[in-house]
Design a protein around this nucleic acid. Structure first.
Lengths: 214, 214
DNA sequence: GATCTTGTTCATCAGACGATCAATAAGGTA
DNA sequence: TACCTTATTGATCGTCTGATGAACAAGATC
């Protein structure tokens, strides 16, 4: 019943003296799931215990706890953005419905993740810049182009606004919030519901599409 | 520049020796806005400082910090539910669109609140039961009846599901999340966008309504 | 104004916290 | 095997934390 033997987050009994780069990554990995679970106020001693190392070791790789937290931010941030999305959104050889469906399939696959959802929420509540950067990037590179494409697809006859797209986006993200933050039951596979939402969104603007996912 | 003189959350310089009931309420009020700002890990000494009292006084009214946190939960919880909503949803003398619009107008007026939004999110992340109770109550007394009413209003020709209503709900709530948790710009008055969302939702199911807000 | 009740403060505890640094030992090199 | 580098540990510091209890004083009653 000692501190290092009761958590499954520790991959195995890690033997000592790892290469610095490897150890650093191990600490960040552990910190991601640890902070995701207990919040950014999680204590370094408990994190060290889960990793099976001493608390002082953490401060050999990070000059302060805040330094570690920012490494966690950077880690989770990078995995949630694909450079291919802007081109996907603008690919007019495919219908707007198919593009949006594929984008949100990929997007959902990346953000419906326990650790990401919770760390993004924790950092938002803490007032970190991570969230604003991320959401502004999302708006500039994805939502605003998406809005353009909807206007083009409807020959400019549609009065959709950016705020409308945020509401669609919010409805999709809310599935993950219900699941990972409120821990409420959600569909096992959110993709069908996401496709329904996109289809309803476009249909409500008179853009009818046979939106078969395949 | 001392601890008790630089916050506007303190209504005024409160003079000592208040009636217990009044003092208790003052502490809870202060705790609501304090915990909403810094999180449930906020320190009792800082809270006391903002209230202009000593830290030990808090423990004369609450046996532990957790006891205070639960008083905060109860406080914010009660203000966010109206007993009139179920009857409003079921009032078939009015169109379903008007009922949903009025419900979400009232609902938004209660939950688009800095303190509520943040405490609800903090408590959700902490795994508190508050959120599950609240969302289950919302589903049972409001969303499921609303789904029934939509089916009735469309003479049973509509395939709307509860999950569809959650997506509408999530899109609406997400406005508050953007505003108060991510601190991103949102419409000054969210009501027009909410009405648009409801209208789009119904329209996408073929329920067309002239949804003038008045 | 003397007295009593009790709301409030002051001093303090025991433990936990982030962070530091000398001591230790793992593991490569010869 | 002896040696050296350095990843890791163990002990410790100063501070802060929730919580406790004795001492104080505000304000009502007579």
């Amino acid at each position: 019943m000692d501190a290092a033997s009761n958590r499954e987050a520790v991959p195995e009994v890690d033997r000592r003296r790892l290469p610095p780069q490897e150890r650093r990554q191990q600490i960040v990995d552990g910190a991601v799931s640890f902070f995701a679970e207990v919040g950014l106020d999680g204590k370094t001693r408990e994190l060290a215990g889960r990793l099976g190392v001493t608390q002082s070791l953490i401060f050999k790789y990070f000059v302060s706890k805040q330094d570690l937290v920012e490494a966690v931010y950077e880690r989770v941030y990078l995995e949630r953005i694909s450079p291919h999305w802007p081109a996907l959104i603008r690919d007019r050889s495919r219908s707007i419905g198919k593009r949006m469906s594929e984008f949100y399939r990929d997007y959902g696959g990346r953000i419906f993740d326990h650790d990401w959802m919770r760390i993004f929420m924790f950092s938002g509540l803490a007032g970190a810049q991570l969230n604003k950067r991320y959401l502004n990037h999302l708006r500039l590179t994805l939502l605003e182009p998406m809005l353009d494409e909807i206007h083009v697809a409807s020959s400019g006859e549609v009065d959709a606004t950016l705020e409308d797209l945020w509401s669609l986006h919010g409805g999709i993200v809310y599935i993950g919030i219900r699941q990972h933050i409120y821990q409420m039951p959600t569909p096992d596979d959110p993709q069908p519901e996401i496709d329904r939402m996109i289809q309803r969104f476009l249909r409500s603007f008179g853009i009818e599409e046979a939106c078969a996912p395949s």
